[in-house]
Structures are given as structure tokens and as C-alpha cells.
Design a protein around this nucleic acid. Structure first.
Lengths: 194, 194
DNA sequence: TCTTTTACCGACTACTCGGTTTGTTCTTTT
DNA sequence: AAAAGAACAAACCGAGTAGTCGGTAAAAGA
């Protein structure tokens, strides 16, 4: 079952959900239809199990957990994103931002799956906001900062850069992104004015 | 032919390329297969014609042309992005960032189409860089700014926010994005330090 | 030992999709 | 009026696709 899910995620990530047939997955596993439908009710059910068992945990452990409860949220966020982009650069099977790929693929097509995907994003967002707010009381973040807006901006720029990275020069893109993120964070942490 | 392309782009945008059949398009036009294959060699050929005839022109006129040759690039870019997000908010058929959807959909699956899509991004990027450089000599942009990195950051955050906007609250997301973009641009234009 | 459960096989069905072929209806040209 | 071609319609092809179903081998309980 785990093997199926891992292989499934890899193929869905590389080829897209609708563009990957159940047979494709089974072929690369040397398994049969029977094996698949013994464990999962449908292709959709299979995908949802992947989201919850693999995708969420991966994102949680790489982007959410490391920030939680730490001091100096901006530095923590910076590191997390740098690490995520680092693995994305070197490892094709990082499940990197499979999430953003899937979101665009299922947008307006499969509300149920979209719900699961959005939930993951929401957890990340809430975590970012909480950390930023905490950062204010600790003096790391400017008091006038709109934490929600910063969280959204961080997430959207990350999704965007990951989209660009698949086809462009990952190393260069990562460098540019981190450089500008730090510039931006300077503004967020600045003591004087808004 | 034009009707086919417009309808095609709308459906491809809403449902995705692989998830939209030629029959779907023809059904909503009350046309038959014969009509389609009289004008286009294949579904792929059809899509490429849409990219060049509709997508590129739309993006060029909304995001590229308004910046070209104007003074004060940061303000111009701000306005362009705000307008783009504005139409994205109110008009479902804005072709808004169809581009980023298509890029994620074709990534690693269809190199030829990816080429066409990347070309559009490249034109936008080059235009942004040129404007930023010009902005330096005119004193609108800090001399030490890495124009290429700023361009990448602007593009990636825009792609990301457009991805989020399809499912989230567009008005709120737009507001947050513009707010933070302005903060970021403050840093880019700042005279003192890097 | 006998029975049930677990995990799997692979042929089969109903259906979809891109693309082809052939036929029809106009309009234009000669 | 006749021929030619443009612009479509309709039926069809073959390669896939998700999902079903009867069967089976091996292990676990009883």
C-alpha cells in the first residue's frame, strides 16, 4: 500500500493526476488492477489517501513544524523556504511543491480534492500568522505589520517560484528568490515607520 | 475560427487542457468534428494557435505594453498588477493567469507547448528588467538593486497570488498582495543602503 | 486439519477521446 | 447552368481508461 502511494505521488506529480492512469502506476509497480482496487475504492480515494498520508506530512515537517514555537520567525521562515528550495533544486522526487501543481490542476474541477489541498495551505498560513504575531511581542517583527498579508505574500511568492523552478534554472531562481525575500523581510522587521 | 479559439481558451482555462475534450468545445459551439479539423490540424495545433493569437496578445496588452517606455517603473508595475488582479477579481473570463495554470499543466509533459508559454514569460521578464534598469538612471530605483531578481520576484509572487485567487477570497487576496507589493517596492526604491 | 482472511491476478465491460472518412450544403467562379 | 471548392455534418475507428468480477495462493485462526 505504501509503495503504491509513493509511486502514485511521484507519477501524479510528474505527469499530473488526470494524465496518469491507474494502469501507469500499476505497470511501474508490476501489480495488477485487483491489487489496486483491493486497497482503494477509486482513483480519487487513492489520491486523497496520498494527500493525507504523504503530502501533508511532508509539507508539515518541512515548512510548518520547524517554525512552530521558535523565536525570530522571519529567520525561521527564511531557513524553511531556503531548505525547501534547496531540496527542490537537487531532488526531483522531493514532492516539492506538488501542492501548488495539484491546486491548479483541481481548481474548479474537483471541489472535494480542492478542499483537502486548501486545508494544507490553511494550516501553513495559520502557522505563519501565529509565528509572525508572536514575533511582534518579541520585537522581531514591526508592530504595524499585517501578519495575514505577510503570510499570504510569502506563500504566494513561494508557490510562484516553485512553478517557475520546474522549467527554469533552479539554482539561479532560488538565489534570486532568497535575496529578494530577505529584502522584503527587512521591511517587515524594520522598527521605524510602517 | 475566432469563436472556436475564444471558446477553447475559456474551457481550457477553466477545466485544463487534458481535461477538456475537443468534443466539449464543439458541443458548446454546436459544431462538429469536421468543422474543427477543417481549421486545425490537431488539438495541440489548436492550442498553440490560441496561445499566439489570444493569450500572448492579452498578456502583452495588459502587463507588458503599459510599462514600456513609461517613467517611474515601480508605479507602472504596481498599476499593471493591480489592474490585472482587478479584472481577475471581477471577470471570470479574464484569461487572467491562464498562463500560470498552463505552465504547471504542461510542465515536463509537453516541451513544445512549454516553449511557447515560457516565451511569453520571458518577454514579460525582459520588459520588467529593462524598465527597472531605466528606472535606475532616472532615480526611481536604487542603483544597487538586482533588477533581474526583482523581476523574478514580482513574476513569481504574481503567479502565486493568481493561483490562490481562483479558490480563495479574491478581493481580500488582492488587497493583501498589493499592500505587501508596495512595502516591497519601498525597499527597492529606497535611496539609502542596499 | 479445516476454514476463513488477506492480498493479489487478469480478463472483461462500458465508455471516452483524438482523429479519419465520407457525405452534404452552400457559395463562388466560369 | 455546371463545375469547383469552401465549410461544415455524421458516422465511425482504434487506442486508451476507470472500474468490475470470478478466481487463487498462501497465511492465520480454529
Amino acid at each position: 500500500m505504501q509503495r503504491m502511494q509513493i509511486t502514485g505521488l511521484n507519477l501524479f506529480y510528474k505527469q499530473g493526476y488526470y494524465n496518469t492512469s491507474v494502469d501507469d502506476i500499476l505497470k511501474s509497480l508490476s501489480l495488477s488492477k485487483g491489487a489496486f482496487y483491493y486497497h482503494f475504492q477509486s482513483k480519487e480515494d487513492f489520491f486523497i489517501s496520498i494527500i493525507q498520508n504523504l503530502l501533508f506530512k511532508k509539507i508539515y515537517s518541512s515548512l510548518i513544524e520547524p517554525i512552530e514555537g521558535q523565536r525570530g520567525p522571519l529567520t525561521q521562515i527564511e531557513n524553511c523556504i531556503e531548505n525547501a528550495l534547496e531540496t527542490a533544486e537537487h531532488n526531483n522526487e522531493d514532492y516539492g511543491f506538488a501542492l501548488s501543481n495539484f491546486i491548479t490542476e483541481f481548481n474548479g474541477r474537483n471541489p472535494e480534492i480542492m478542499q483537502y489541498l486548501n486545508d494544507i495551505l490553511k494550516v501553513w498560513e495559520v502557522n505563519l500568522i501565529t509565528s509572525l504575531q508572536k514575533g511582534k511581542t518579541e520585537g522581531f517583527v514591526n508592530r504595524h505589520t499585517d501578519s495575514e498579508a505577510v503570510a499570504t505574500y510569502v506563500i504566494s511568492s513561494f508557490i510562484g517560484i516553485r512553478t517557475l523552478m520546474v522549467e527554469g534554472n533552479p539554482k539561479l531562481l532560488k538565489y534570486k528568490h532568497m535575496q529578494q525575500l530577505r529584502h522584503y523581510f527587512k521591511m517587515v522587521s524594520q522598527k521605524e515607520n510602517v
